[in-house]
Design a protein around this nucleic acid. Structure first.
Lengths: 330, 330
DNA sequence: CTGAAAGCGCTTACAG
DNA sequence: CTGAAAGCGCTTACAG
């Protein structure tokens, strides 16, 4: 049960080389002779050697651990992006340390300390850090800090994402082009969703139209809020012709409620989502939504990390695409 | 930017004690004198010391890293459990290393190696490892291996979960008590869902009734399969009176399809889900489902780890509760 | 309650 | 292409 694991020294002895060479075999294979490599490989297989990366991290002062901090994971709009991030990072030889900061970010500081304790090569944040002290602390830290899913004016170090305000503007243009005239916004109370609502309102009123009506809901959003959103419509006169929802879950819940009340989507009421989750394409009617490319965010993050490690100076804001996916619901 | 981080030696010098004492302050605080602790605390604050846990892991041969291996995370039935697991583990001072094994488990061996490289204190698996070579390799490994969400006859080391067969049996009894007579099973092709279907069939036929009809769907399951499941019902004669779905997502999709076709749930067709996701309670009609207590699995896992660390010999199978949540849909 | 010393298992200039 | 030696930043018996 508790047999001690083999060390690099055992492998080197069996292969008839020094520990340095075995180390090079793992970390800089190009430099070791073919025949030597063969013998090392054999020795590794023979003893079942698995390198101790904690020792490696200490010796090289590079941990190859990346911390990914997310508000939650049970049902998060970030999950696609986080999955892509984990895939890409591990495929590139990193370990991913995941931490939950709570949907109110109350655990953020604690989780940052935990990440720093492991001497992670980078901290990847989903969502925006608003606390000034935390921002200041990370600003000049030796550890790379990457904010994703947003493009703040003044990132802590580097932000990889998109402007939620711009998403809102684009949504407003889309809604107008589709011929809708009385949009209603269902806005989860997160800074990002609020930014999108602001962008929508700015673009909508810029043409002289009256500001859209809006209804706040709690964040993170979920299916059940569709019911709330639908109830909110009952008293409105005139009734909106399109509801722009802060997430696909809300949109889905709203459609189910509308159907139960005998209201046809999109004929009587159009509905838009956000996030382009798989269910958006599967729902009946299919849900018009806005796609965020989680894999692109993940790839850009990897690339930024590599460029930074190579000593390059990076632009603080790396924009990533979003696109509106027109489907049946709006 | 790249200022070197302070080491324990700096703290000890400022506090006027040895490095050993500072180490004890962190790892065995009860043993250091109050006044000494006060001076150490001051020194820590002064220099902003954050211990290097990679060095600590190496020195103590205890990493306080736990690997959590999951098939996927974008939309997984395990997500509630995984979230609970991460919360509990980090609250107890562990770091959580997360890895994706793929829904076909094709990356499992690679991710196990990655975990062993970090000398994790435990590997927590969600789902069952079927590959014999992998099982054999982990069986006698010094690293703790915990299988969760299932209760196999012969766990690798320790299993914490419930019997899917028993869930199926309980579901059959529930369905019969509710007065349904022609159950139809929608079965994702995962070993767990198949076990539940087997349990259902066994309990159902034990009373002399004809075996339930069944339809396989791919795994992992998702909302869109509700459409598939509904189409599968069209040709059936007689039509089933209750559809037992492998997940709440399938149940939800099936209900949406049924409604679109003018079929009332549960009046004309009853539907059951599995997993008791939040949406089950929010759906219209609310979905009768089976609840798995992710927090209980997480807590039992922590407890097992602690008991094992204390040298206790644990029973190989630790059962965890499930319960049927009766709602409107069946 | 505290300190000096050895050691955890690697990596990396340096020299050849 | 390879090896010897120093060092990464901690922890932990051991002794007092």
């Amino acid at each position: 049960m508790s047999k001690r694991q083999p060390r690099i020294e055992e492998v080197s002895r069996i292969a008839g080389v020094s520990a340095s060479t075995v180390s090079r075999f793992f970390n800089n294979p190009g430099v070791v002779a073919d025949e030597t490599a063969r013998r090392i490989r054999e020795a590794i297989d023979q003893v079942g050697y698995v390198p101790n990366l904690n020792a490696g991290s200490l010796a090289s002062s590079r941990s190859r651990i990346i911390a990914v901090l997310v508000p939650d994971i049970a049902q998060s709009i970030f999950n696609d992006t986080v999955e892509a991030m984990i895939e890409e990072l591990t495929a590139h030889g990193n370990s991913v340390m995941i931490s939950l900061t709570g949907s109110d970010n109350s655990l953020l500081d604690r989780q940052i300390d935990a990440a720093l304790s492991r001497r992670v090569d980078a901290i990847i944040l989903t969502g925006v850090v608003t606390d000034a002290a935390t921002r200041a602390r990370l600003k000049n830290h030796a550890t790379a800090v990457i904010e994703t899913w947003a493009l703040p004016d003044d990132p802590i170090q580097i932000a990889i994402g998109f402007s939620h305000f711009a998403v809102g503007e684009a949504t407003a243009r889309f809604v107008r082009e589709r011929g809708y005239r009385r949009p209603h916004l269902v806005v989860p109370q997160s800074s990002r969703a609020i930014e999108r609502a602001n962008g929508f309102t700015a673009a909508w009123t810029a043409r002289g139209d009256e500001a859209p009506t809006a209804q706040p809901v709690s964040s993170p959003s979920h299916f059940g809020q569709g019911r709330l959103a639908f109830r909110g419509l009952a008293d409105m006169d005139p009734r909106p012709d399109v509801v722009v929802c802060g997430s696909d879950w809300i949109a889905q819940g709203l459609i189910v409620e509308a159907n139960a009340a005998g209201i046809r989507v999109p004929d009587t009421l159009a509905v838009m989502g956000f996030g382009n989750l798989r269910l958006a394409g599967d729902m009946r009617p299919t849900i018009t939504s806005i796609d965020i490319d989680g894999h692109q965010i993940a790839r850009e993050t990897i690339r930024a990390l590599q460029r930074k490690a190579a000593g390059e100076v990076l632009p603080p804001r790396l924009p990533v695409d979003f696109r509106i996916i027109a489907r049946e619901s709006a």
